[in-house]
Design a protein around this nucleic acid. Sequence first.
DNA 1: ATAATACTTAACCAATCGGTAAACTGTTTC
DNA 2: GAAACAGTTTACCGATTGGTTAAGTATTAT
Lengths: 126, 126
Amino acid sequence: MTIGRKHRVRSASRSSARDDQASQLDAVFGALSDPIRRAILARLARSECSVTALGQPFAISAPAISKHLRVLEASGLISRRKAGRNHYCRLHPKVLRHAEEWIALQRAFWEQQFDALAKYLDEAQS
Amino acid sequence: MTIGRKHRVRSASRSSARDDQASQLDAVFGALSDPIRRAILARLARSECSVTALGQPFAISAPAISKHLRVLEASGLISRRKAGRNHYCRLHPKVLRHAEEWIALQRAFWEQQFDALAKYLDEAQS
DNA sequence: ATAATACTTAACCAATCGGTAAACTGTTTC
DNA sequence: GAAACAGTTTACCGATTGGTTAAGTATTAT
């Protein structure tokens, strides 16, 4: 989840599109790295849901849930809608797709490398 | 990257298969949440690589790289091979595939929900 | 044998994280 | 209007993270 290099650098100058995408990946993968947050997302996949209902399965306090939701919201994975005293959370699939695409792209390269190695070994053997 | 709930719990008893998978996801997504580590993985996709060579593009110290590699290794995404005084790192695609599968599964549910909503709206309109 | 190289370990530091309890802000219900 | 409910904010705590420098361990080169 690192943003700047080396103890507070990168003075918010320009912040290229590439940086934006990279830091969104930081946030998304960081958000996914906690089991409670993944469970919250899985729950939200079924339907929109109020904050209390989201927290009900877990043995943690309301503020803790609130923090998890803030992390998820900051990553763009969810958004909120206020309805009276209830806040309802909803998923944003597009953001998850970006993360999936990063992984899929990487894996394609990785496996290509493995295929190349396999081919090399195959040829070396003959 | 949380392991135990609520300040040191879970006395290492049994640790079900589900927990193992979940905590591997914690570790993998946690590892992917840092841009330097993602860059290291991207570099490794091209070929096996020594530790110094891996660190060369980044303006951080050797111990910092060593720590990143330990995180990656703990997640199962890479492994090391010692050859003399050099240590060579290699990728483990299977672990990345697990993460991708989790995301793909989730996204399938998410989008199914969105499709259902779209259909509902469509029917409500007519 | 000495020196340089490649890397890790140890000790430290500031910032972040995941949790808590307490206090606060709205909204609904009585 | 008072009480209950839904949720957030604030202030705090201990553990973890990402970095540092300094020292240590092998291995290779001179």
